[in-house]
């Protein structure tokens, strides 16, 4: 039987959840035996080449590019797992959600104390910001949630191995953390 395929995505986050995945230490060798990675920043594969079993999503959804890629992930992955507080709640980037977007941009690029000759970036290559930062489940259906900022290596390991071996993902108390 072919190894299960895993893809990972970094949306609006800090890459900490991907780092936490690498933090499983030597279990990464075991993981390499268990799975094969498709589209992921870890191997720098840019597009889906085939249907994937598990998609791991880091980060909230803050711009049109995030939305497009999240929908691609939903189309190409059998199981989608939102990983970490940004993917689950919007996280720290979602602190801007109670401030109108225009005010955020003006504060960052025009009125901030360190701004000199500021202008709000409008290059067509830059993704367009959404009005708010959305958790992944407000954009597409998400099958499983792994909380944490980031989820610890043990949490990721426990959940991944359970998912890949068809077991129930029942996280013990100490592995459910929102920070």
């Amino acid at each position: 039987m072919a190894k299960p395929l895993v893809a990972t995505a970094p949306f609006t986050g800090c890459f900490g959840c991907h780092m936490s995945l690498l933090d499983i230490d030597d279990r990464i060798l075991e993981l390499a035996d268990l799975v094969e990675f498709d589209k992921s920043p870890i191997n720098d594969i840019k597009t889906f080449s085939r249907p994937v079993d598990v998609g791991l999503l880091e980060g909230g959804i803050s711009n049109d590019e995030n939305v497009e890629w999240l929908r691609e992930f939903r189309k190409n992955c059998k199981v989608l797992v939102a990983v970490g507080q940004c993917a689950l709640t919007g996280g720290v980037p979602a602190m801007r959600n109670t401030v109108p977007l225009k005010e955020c941009l003006e504060e960052a690029y025009l009125n901030g104390p360190t701004v000199v000759d500021g202008c709000i970036p409008n290059d067509p290559d830059i993704p367009i910001l959404l009005d708010k930062v959305y958790p992944c489940h407000e954009v597409v259906k998400i099958d499983y949630f792994l909380p944490g900022c980031p989820p610890s290596a043990d949490t990721l390991w426990a959940a991944l191995t359970a998912l890949l071996t068809g077991k129930d993902v029942g996280l013990p108390y100490e592995l459910i953390k929102y920070d």
Binding site: Q85, T89, V92, A94, M95, N97, C149, Y178, D179
Partner: peptide
């Protein structure tokens, strides 16, 4: 509310 656990 606006509960951002990672920064609280």
């Amino acid at each position: 509310g606006n509960h951002h656990c990672p920064s609280c």
